[in-house]
Simulated scan of single mutants.
Amino acid sequence: MASGYGLNGGPSRCYAFWQEVLGCYVVNAEDGETGKKKCMPALEDYYECLHHKKEAMRTMKMQAAFRKAEASHPRENAPKAEQVRNLGLLGKEEDSAAVMGRS
């Protein structure tokens, strides 16, 4: 939260990261532009704590890889969509038997 307090009155979840950023800026204040560059890793950690962009990107990549792996190894003997739609309908007992593996 913007106030620095969490939902339950304690410090916010990213308060420790913010303290690291402030500490880095205080230590490297005289260095000017190079001091800011030294503090970029701490600032990136703080932004990640706030927005979870890297974590979301990693999750999306893992899901895409899973979908790709799943698509490259289709199930053997998987019923087609039209066969599944016919299951349980009157007059389609032969389709149901074929999908269920009954003769």
Rank of each mutant, 00 (worst) to 15 (best):
L7Y: 10
L7G: 15
L7K: 08
L7P: 14
L7W: 07
N8R: 11
N8V: 07
N8A: 14
N8S: 12
N8L: 12
N8E: 08
G9S: 09
G9D: 04
G10P: 04
G10R: 15
P11N: 12
P11L: 14
P11D: 11
S12P: 06
S12Y: 04
S12E: 09
S12C: 14
S12K: 05
S12R: 07
S12D: 15
S12A: 15
S12M: 14
R13H: 15
R13Y: 11
R13F: 09
R13C: 06
C14M: 04
C14E: 01
C14A: 05
Y15M: 10
Y15S: 08
Y15C: 06
Y15K: 04
A16N: 09
A16I: 05
F17Y: 09
F17M: 08
W18K: 09
W18S: 05
V21S: 01
V21Q: 00
V21A: 02
V21G: 01
V21T: 03
L22P: 05
L22W: 07
L22C: 10
G23S: 04
G23I: 02
G23W: 00
G23N: 05
G23C: 03
G23M: 03
C24R: 02
C24I: 02
C24H: 01
C24A: 05
Y25F: 11
Y25D: 02
Y25W: 06
V26F: 07
V26C: 06
V26Q: 14
V27K: 05
V27R: 08
V27W: 05
V27H: 04
N28P: 01
N28W: 00
N28Q: 10
N28V: 00
A29C: 13
A29F: 15
A29W: 11
A29S: 15
A29T: 08
A29I: 14
E30D: 15
E30I: 05
E30V: 11
E30L: 14
E30F: 12
D31C: 06
D31P: 00
D31E: 15
G32M: 03
G32S: 09
G32I: 01
G32W: 01
E33S: 09
E33Q: 10
E33I: 13
E33Y: 13
T34Y: 06
T34V: 14
T34L: 11
T34F: 07
T34E: 15
G35N: 01
K36R: 11
K36L: 12
C39I: 00
M40S: 10
M40A: 15
P41F: 02
P41D: 00
P41S: 03
